[in-house]
Design a protein around this nucleic acid. Structure first.
Lengths: 189, 189
DNA sequence: ACCTGAACACCGTTCAAGT
DNA sequence: ACCTGAACACCGTTCAAGT
């Protein structure tokens, strides 16, 4: 379809590899992903993968990028800045819950929150409309991103549920935290 | 010295194993720790370790416990509740920074913040003296613990420093986050 | 350019055999 | 009770040889 068909194996494309890796991670966790296992799922020689992916670290990075790019379609430009902030947080949350196993790993890695990602830019925009001093926007944005990231990490790995008790709504901890953070921002505008 | 000396190898005690593992983790990261490598460091047969430790997961758990038990000696009962909260947060921070590699791994695991740990109990006590409704203390404590945990995680892995820029004091992000959280709590007492 | 078999240097863990 | 060699079932990655 792309023109350069040849007889080259169509299962062996970068996207096909990343998607297959994501399927394994979603179903069985990051620990279950190995180059050999991935190749077996694709019905392909393990070594062939190395022609499309630098190494396992790059593979995991690619999968993370695949998922977090889903945040590119978020638009939050409506309502008060409080509502916008809350909406942004919940978008981040549903994206995380959709791929719990991956996000668990991604957050542990160094560069989960990319300072050039769409999430980050939206966040800073909202803080500006909230009336925060320009000199404070980036610092505050960084702190909020990091706090919400940590929050989702603990929700995804079950810590939050365990600490807060089982009777609660599953977003009780998240809701309270977001309220608290919004109040914290409100105190400094 | 303990009485039951025999000729049994004194390098092979649970504490000796945990401490040696911690040394490897501090120096080279969790990834550098393997049962075989640990045994080599101890000058011991790899298989002998399994008589003192269930498996690698239990080993890592033990090392984490070894370190986080350092929080047992924290006392914060002085000053306003704001000062107490801040002191608690900074104690948590210095404990984390002292073993960055370990904390990186521990926070990724399920049960980093134990609901029976000293940190947790102190936190709830402070929130009570702040005048929070008893029904809100545990929920708020859980949220704060999780937020500060996530915060330290990103400080330890460098994300915070990267997002906030290099010119800043190394606790600039942490300080701002703690202020913001205290303001958030203040808004709900 | 892309694929692949063999090989290297590792893993965690089990287990039967030793003392 | 504690130790240990051999073995099992895996890893990620390199590389020379193929097409």
């Amino acid at each position: 379809m792309a023109g350069n068909g040849k007889q080259s194996d169509q299962r062996l494309t970068k996207d096909g590899i990343l998607l297959s890796a994501l399927r394994i991670i979603d179903a069985e966790g990051v620990a279950a992903l190995s180059m050999r296992r991935l190749a077996a799922d694709l019905g392909v020689n393990p070594m062939s993968l190395y022609h499309h992916v630098d190494n396992k670290a790059a593979l995991l990075d690619g999968v993370t990028r695949l998922v977090t790019d889903g945040a590119r379609h978020i638009s939050v430009a409506e309502g008060t800045w409080q509502e916008q902030l809350r909406r942004l947080a919940y978008e981040f949350r549903s994206l995380s819950l959709a791929h719990r196993n991956l996000i668990r790993h991604a957050f542990a890695s160094d560069d989960f929150i990319q300072s050039d990602g769409p999430m980050w830019r939206s966040l800073c925009a909202v803080l500006r409309t909230a009336g925060l001093l320009e000199s404070e926007v980036e610092r505050t944005g960084a702190v909020l991103a990091v706090l919400v990231g940590g929050l989702l990490h603990t929700e995804v790995n079950g810590t939050m549920g365990r600490l807060i008790g089982v009777g609660e709504a599953d977003d009780a901890g998240f809701a309270l935290a977001v309220d608290l953070l919004i109040d914290g921002v409100a105190a400094r505008v």
